[in-house]
Amino acid sequence: MASRRPPPFHYRDKGNLATIGRNAAVADFRRFTLRGFIAWLVWGIVHVYLLNGFDNRMIVTFRWLWAYATRRRGARLVSLSQPEVAVVPECRAPLREE
């Protein structure tokens, strides 16, 4: 194959989306800005759309709908205890210096 140069890279800003909380977000696009519930819906739709695979999209959508309908939060576990650390036996072989 002949060496082909890739086309030059051009960055295209599609805007910014940020969720603030339940029913609140901001969406800043080039030509317009959204706030509140509508921006929150746009954020959720874009997030689900950008997930890989149909299964992941469906799972996330149903989990979000269930959490929204029941007002329950997902599992957000914070553990203050230290995780178990595997103990490695001490090596008593002398180190070589070169």
Rank of each mutant, 00 (worst) to 15 (best):
R4D: 13
A18C: 08
L17R: 06
V88T: 14
D13P: 11
H47K: 07
P7V: 08
N56D: 00
R12T: 09
V42H: 09
T19K: 15
L50S: 08
T70R: 08
L17V: 04
V46P: 00
L50R: 15
I59C: 00
L50N: 14
L17H: 01
V88R: 11
M1K: 11
I59G: 02
V60L: 09
E90F: 10
N52C: 04
R22W: 04
V78F: 09
M58H: 07
A24W: 02
Y11D: 14
R12L: 10
I38P: 13
L65T: 09
T70D: 03
M1W: 09
R76H: 11
R12I: 11
F62W: 00
W43D: 07
P83A: 05
N23V: 01
R71E: 07
M58D: 00
M58Y: 01
L34C: 13
F9S: 03
W43C: 14
W43Y: 15
E84V: 14
Q82C: 13
I20S: 01
N52I: 07
L95R: 15
L17F: 06
R71Q: 09
G15Y: 07
R5L: 04
R30V: 03
R73M: 10
L17I: 13
R35E: 02
R31V: 09
F32K: 11
N16H: 10
L34T: 10
T33H: 08
A86T: 14
L95Q: 11
V26Q: 07
R92P: 01
P8V: 05
N16E: 05
D13F: 15
H10T: 10
W64K: 04
V60I: 03
A39D: 07
A2R: 14
V88M: 09
I20K: 12
Q82Y: 13
F54S: 06
S3C: 10
A27N: 07
Q82M: 12
A27L: 05
W40T: 01
R35G: 00
I45H: 12
E98I: 13
G21T: 03
Y49M: 07
D28I: 13
G15M: 12
A69F: 05
L17T: 01
R73S: 08
A18D: 00
L80K: 11
F9I: 08
L50C: 07
V88N: 09
R35L: 04
A25V: 09
D13W: 15
L95N: 07
A86C: 13
T61S: 13
F37N: 02
Q82V: 06
F29P: 06
E97Y: 08
V85K: 12
L50A: 03
K14R: 14
S79H: 06
A75Y: 00
P6I: 05
A24Q: 11
R5A: 14
R71C: 04
P8Y: 00
P6S: 06
N16C: 15
T33C: 04
H10K: 13
W43F: 12
F32P: 00
W43S: 04
E84S: 07
V26N: 06
N52H: 13
P8Q: 12
A75K: 04
I38L: 14
I38G: 06
R71G: 05
V60R: 02
V48N: 01
T19G: 03
E97L: 13
S3P: 08
W66R: 14
P7S: 10
I45M: 06
A69I: 06
V60A: 05
E90G: 07
I59H: 03
S3A: 10
S3N: 10
S79A: 11
D28W: 01
Y68A: 10
A24V: 00
E90T: 14
R22G: 00
R35W: 01
R30Y: 07
A27C: 12
